[in-house]
Design a protein around this nucleic acid. Sequence first.
DNA 1: TACTAAGTGGAACGGCCTTCCCGCTTACCG
DNA 2: CGGTAAGCGGGAAGGCCGTTCCACTTAGTA
Lengths: 235, 235
Amino acid sequence: MPKPTGPADTPGQQSETALRADAERNRERILEAARRLFGTEGLGVSMASVAREACVGKATLSRRFDTREDLIDAVFVDRMDDYAESAVEALADPDPWRGFTRHIERICAMQAADRGFAAVLTQAFPTAKVIEARRAKSYQDFQELIRRAKATGHLREDFVADDVIVMLMANAGVIAATGDAAPDAWRRLSGHMLRAFATPGAPLPPMPPPPTTRDLYRAMIRYGRPSPDTTGTAS
Amino acid sequence: MPKPTGPADTPGQQSETALRADAERNRERILEAARRLFGTEGLGVSMASVAREACVGKATLSRRFDTREDLIDAVFVDRMDDYAESAVEALADPDPWRGFTRHIERICAMQAADRGFAAVLTQAFPTAKVIEARRAKSYQDFQELIRRAKATGHLREDFVADDVIVMLMANAGVIAATGDAAPDAWRRLSGHMLRAFATPGAPLPPMPPPPTTRDLYRAMIRYGRPSPDTTGTAS
DNA sequence: TACTAAGTGGAACGGCCTTCCCGCTTACCG
DNA sequence: CGGTAAGCGGGAAGGCCGTTCCACTTAGTA
């Protein structure tokens, strides 16, 4: 009877009875495949295609992660670490306003780099404990950052933490709509957003150039296919 | 020979041989059903569900509109008229900057009022002649509006027409993400965007309040289900 | 009124997805 | 080693979607 360490107390997903070596290897392959597909296609890719990409049976996938949300949780832990870390870094900056602007730019860039992650930042996954913990932590730190940034006089007084969530939703929209037809369009948005958040005299990074009309049009055409963003709520 | 009883000789789609009375009635029912479903669920609802909602057979639907794009074109003609009209109205305003701000607010509101239309404004449908004509017209007028608004000194010099497309994509993202859990979140975004576009002293409408944290969180949870935005490219 | 072609809905089909199940393989412990 | 249960893959069943075909209905005309 392999009855190793404590039973099921790791947050989030499945039983935690320590996998057999080959099983663990498969688990890893699934995570890699999912990371790849989520990144390029968005959350919402079929579980079947994840299994196919990982070269495992469909059964193996759902045995390891019985809901899509579990898979998402496992895939994006690292990214959420980076996300939470960004707020910490921002707080560490001696100039809170510079910390603020860089934080905004960093998290927008994180969204742009991974389409699935862009969605993760704008959705809540109640059962994904790990993700939600990181999100909460970042939110806390961000509140403090706001307080300090306002004290410099460069951040608008009416700015609130939830504005950043709205911004992330907006940015996700731009990223989903432009895809790789206009891969830098999001920079233009984040440039605008910083200008919206800043008070008149505040120092700002230079405004990124707009995407070319041609690229934007290509993006509008290309757009259309598979942007499900679906989560498949746990049953 | 059936007479040409104004059954809308809309360009673009199907044969235009004037439908029989009952067929025309069905066509209308399909359009109503599609308008309703596109508005609440987004483009991307299954053609089958449109047929069901319209109480016609699936065959009837695809006989009348052989591609989803045709249906979209027919459904959104009026909305696109309003859209193009908004730019005209803006040009008619003696104060170009006020015309500009109102135009921005109006088109964002149009997106918020109809989820399908929000998608239409950020996608191109090469085969949907009617829609594309209106879009082009609006774009032209908007260029002129920009020119005049810059002349007032209230619009940033580095603003370009394509910025409004990026903004529409962003707004569509917010609308898709918040749905009716936080139905006014988009106003906050448009408020930010106007502040981003304006030069320091420019007169602006008051900043809309942010959505409540509670509503935003509900939106993040609720989000996830079926926001396909898909178009089903014509084959 | 009677005829005919335009118009109809449902059945059938192929594709893709998910979930469940079952017989085979193999890692690991003794 | 060798036995055993953990782990595996794929097939079956069931659900939706979109398309196509076909026998029936009915609007409009003569």
